[in-house]
Simulated assay, not measured.
Amino acid sequence: MSSYGKFAYVYDELMADMPYPRWLEFAEEAWSRYGKPRTVAELGCGTGAITIPLGGAGYHMTGIDLSSDMLSVAQQKLELHPQGRRFLREGSVRWIRQDMKEWELPEQVDSVISFCDCLNYVLEQEEIQAVFARTYAGLKEGGSFIFDVHHPDTLIRYEEEQPFVLDELPVSYIWTCSLDELRMEIEHHLSIFAREEGKDSLYRRFEETHIQRAYDPQWLKQELQAAGFRDVKVYADFTWHEADEDAERLFYVALK
């Protein structure tokens, strides 16, 4: 799996079309329904595309990621943010390098979020169980755990529709997939071409392999309940409609 070294520094350009505003809207609506938090931890925060805006909205944010390169980019973005100096002075946005299977903060938080299918990168059932157990322990009583994952059929569709090609400045890629249907595990193979700074005609190529696994939606719900969560809801595709087999992206909201 990628170490997210070189990838971290082109990540935001590759992800420019991702629906970050919709994730932010979903989180805000979930909190309006299930309880407004003051302190929030984001698992798999990457370069801070969700953590930083939520900090700007007044939440005290902790971004947690395993990649030091991703967190380095996030810190650079934070420093350039219009409110960055205030965030740094008040400590209202902070970064911690931890594995989401073992994450732990000195204090419990009001809500935990994990978007952009981060939990699909957790490849074993017992590791998913570890994430749920650590998250339950890290939440205050009444706190919420909100995350999204790919439906298993989404991985099948990825393999059917590949290859994917992006041919734009300053980053392009060729993306192919191979699916193990028995484990419902997919390998994404990317050949990325990134333009060298100040050299319009010179690109460097590097290879990335990312592995994701999709889990049975009902199994995830059962494991959340086994970890102690109550009132577990599963919604479909950024909406508040109950998820069914047609859903591409599943949104879970679980309360402690």
Rank of each mutant, 00 (worst) to 15 (best):
R230A: 11
G142Q: 14
H150S: 05
A41V: 11
Y158C: 01
E197T: 13
E28S: 11
M184P: 00
M61V: 10
G5S: 13
Y121K: 00
Y173E: 14
A41W: 02
D99N: 15
G35A: 07
M18S: 15
E126F: 04
R89I: 05
V232F: 03
R89W: 12
A49H: 01
P163Q: 00
W95L: 12
Q125E: 15
I96K: 11
E104L: 09
C118T: 15
Y158R: 01
T135K: 09
L190Q: 03
Y34G: 01
V112C: 05
L119G: 04
I211M: 03
R89M: 11
W103I: 04
V232Q: 02
K140A: 12
H151A: 12
G138A: 15
F145P: 05
L24F: 01
V112Q: 05
H81F: 00
E42D: 12
E196A: 14
P217Y: 07
K36V: 13
Q222W: 05
E181D: 12
H151Q: 01
I156S: 07
E168R: 13
A254L: 06
L255E: 11
E208P: 01
G56E: 14
V112Y: 07
I146M: 05
I64S: 08
L220W: 05
E160S: 10
T176H: 01
T62N: 03
F229I: 11
E28T: 12
I113F: 00
T51P: 03
F147G: 08
R85M: 12
Y34P: 00
R86L: 14
V73M: 07
Y136Q: 04
L182K: 15
L88S: 11
I113Q: 03
L155I: 01
Q108S: 10
Y34V: 07
D167Q: 10
R38W: 10
K6I: 01
G46F: 10
Y59D: 03
M100P: 03
P37A: 11
P19I: 03
E102G: 04
E90V: 02
T51Q: 08
Q108W: 00
P163R: 02
M61R: 09
L139S: 09
